[in-house]
Design a protein around this nucleic acid. Structure first.
Lengths: 387, 387
DNA sequence: AGAATTACTTCTGAAGCGAAAGAAAAACAT
DNA sequence: ATGTTTTTCTTTCGCTTCAGAAGTAATTCT
């Protein structure tokens, strides 16, 4: 096994296409791969041979119950990725915590950890990352790379341009972490990483056009088109995104966004702020959702207004970005469980009746999911070299 | 010249890339092409040779004043497309007229014509197209193909699925026109054709992400991503697009769209309807714009409201589709000349201050421009085979 | 006039592909 | 049981296309 250590890094374009297809779309026979990639059967034998020899792929015996369909002819020999042949570490840095996960090549989480962040000094943060990495590698020595997600603008998947909440400015994070851990490191905006992860292994798997809207302390938005994430100059503005998505000029004003903006209507702090202003009580987001579900008028009004705002934004995404699917993620999507009908209603009001129904998926995600997204980015860049 | 008649149709992928690059980005030397297409100089000699021999490209002597920059070394030999080596006919079919143009390979218009459409019977329409084509080919015998734009859903660039205003249902238009004219024919939704044309030869030239919003009797919207137009199931709903883009729930209601929708606020019939309702007088769109420019309160209010609606829609496109440029086209863009400030203001209100400025371009287009778009589609499909 | 520079051409070898033919492994038919 | 059919996978061969190297061409600079 130690022979493969550096051998499968330089993949030819053909090999990379095969590897990605198998990685993303599960076990596939050579014949099936040939059809999907528009290659001849002969080419697939050629392309898969070195991948199997290097240990990245294995011939998965037909023992699986998945091959239930009994067909004539020689049975296909599904190829699968040895997901555990390389492990990846993903981190999500928030204002007061660092979340970390260890994942397989297929981004299954093998371990997780979280530590409080007491200072924002780059040196201290890096030291914490080093410490967590050491802990991880002790249990999982096969770790091959690190991905880090930050709510900030990132250049060249390496340098944090500016982070308001960390008060960082031009911090060459990837370089520093590489130096201290010895592992190749990729840094990216947190929303961007989550979008890439969902695009490869999550809700956007195999889709050509795909949008992600995250609801949490702020709003996040990412778009995939042609199977690739659209890089936008707004990626860095994570905390500012949606402050100017005006939904209702007569809507509420909060300290977090413009009056009636998506941020003022929809984010967790804004909803808590509105209920605090109305009732004088401090309540958690979950408490508010619970009250709204029980029909408490104040909470129900705010939550309902938020749901309508969400539906409006979703329909705008559907109308103008025209994705095949929209994923709602983040800590604030519980809203949809409580007021899904209002969301649906607002979407329908803003869509042409003959247009395709909006394909909406909701995924509750915690901070470890954000860390997992960063790990996926490391997989993409370090293993498959998809720049 | 007659030797090339069918010789340059089957272009290899490499040749096609060269041809498109020269066609879209003007005269280019082999060395420059090599840089742009990431090919070696040797490959370019190989690829360009058959294209020159077939008459599609010519070595443009350095006589041009364009080569003003005197550099050291052997002067480059710019290659240019012989734009007149093939001519194309484009048609736009509206409810009461058929507009036609003859264009070069570079989509320069050589001739134009228009005829009233008295009946919507497919046979009659096709007969009119045949007649106009005959007239065109008499003056321009080099015509090599026909493109037709219709405000309807189109399948396989051939069959008109359903057109409300023509009352057509599953009309195999391309097939029929081919049969009657003997020229290869491509049919496409009119907005789609305009988007493709602008993407190749117009405002979207060379851009990766690009959006088009048309304002006229209705609204049209098209998106280009990764240099390719995004095909949407809503393409066919040309007359319905924007009826549910809600801008202001308290806005006006017109017979053309929902209350406060982009259609009710922004289209030419809606603006005329609003002024008719307010003043009792029938006025043309141009008259209304003139009055608004002169400060007449009624007209100014309606036009201003339309401008704000336009700005809102534009900012939503910018926020969610994230194009590098947005083109406003159609007969209704005169609005921007009169109330550009209000448009700008509405865009700014809905955009993050740190986000890139919206790159907005306005292009007044008449119906012949729509026909030209259809001709470009014929060029793309018939000559360069870009499916 | 010669050096330097840039553009283009020609040649060669390597890579990658498809087509075709063969081998293997199963179900199906007799 | 035995052959046939069907499908998958492997092997081989030839074709296309490319990059790289070396050579030629045309111009400016010194």
């Amino acid at each position: 096994m130690s022979t493969l250590d550096a051998s499968w890094l330089p993949l030819s374009p053909g090999e990379r296409a095969v590897a990605i297809e198998v990685l993303v779309h599960g076990p596939l026979s050579r014949a099936e791969l040939a059809r999907r990639l528009n290659l001849s059967a002969g080419s697939l034998t050629r392309l898969t041979k070195p991948l199997i020899e290097s240990g990245l792929l294995v011939e998965k015996g037909t023992e699986g119950a998945a091959s239930a369909e009994v067909r004539q002819g020689r049975p296909s020999q599904p190829l699968d990725m040895v997901a555990e042949s390389r492990l990846f570490i993903g981190f999500k840095i928030t204002e007061d915590m660092v979340y970390g996960v260890v994942t397989t090549l297929r981004s299954d989480i093998m371990a997780r950890d979280e530590r409080p962040l007491t200072t924002h000094e780059p040196a201290a943060v890096i030291d914490l990352l080093r410490e967590m990495t050491q802990e991880f590698t002790r249990a999982h020595p096969r770790a091959a790379g690190i991905g880090i997600g930050v709510g900030a603008g990132v250049r060249d998947r390496s340098v944090v341009i500016r982070s308001p909440f960390l008060d960082w400015d031009e911090v060459p994070l990837a370089e520093l972490v590489e130096e201290w851990t010895g592992l190749p490191t990729v840094v990216e905006n947190d929303v961007a990483a989550l979008v890439e992860a969902e695009c490869w292994f999550g809700a956007g798997r195999g889709l050509d056009r795909f949008a992600v809207l995250t609801i949490g302390a702020g709003l996040g938005y990412g778009l995939v088109s042609g199977g690739r994430r659209v890089v936008s100059s707004e990626d860095g503005l994570s905390l500012g995104r949606g402050r100017h998505w005006m939904v209702d000029p007569h809507g509420p004003l909060t300290p977090y966004g413009e009056r009636g903006s998506a941020v003022s209507l929809l984010t967790i702090p804004s909803i808590r702020y509105q209920l605090h202003a109305a009732t004088g009580r401090e309540m958690t987001y979950e408490e508010i959702l619970g009250l709204a579900a029980d029909g408490e008028p104040m909470a129900a009004r705010v939550v309902d207004e938020a749901a309508r705002a969400l539906g409006t934004i979703v329909s705008q995404i559907a109308n103008f970005a025209m994705p095949q699917k929209i994923l709602l993620a983040g800590e604030g999507v519980g809203l949809v469980d409580v007021a899904g009908a209002a969301v649906e209603e607002a979407i329908l009001a803003n869509r042409h009746p003959q247009a395709d129904k909006v394909n909406l998926e909701t995924k509750v995600s915690d901070f470890h999911d954000w860390a997992r997204g960063a790990a996926v980015l490391a997989i993409q860049v370090l293993v498959l070299g998809s720049a």
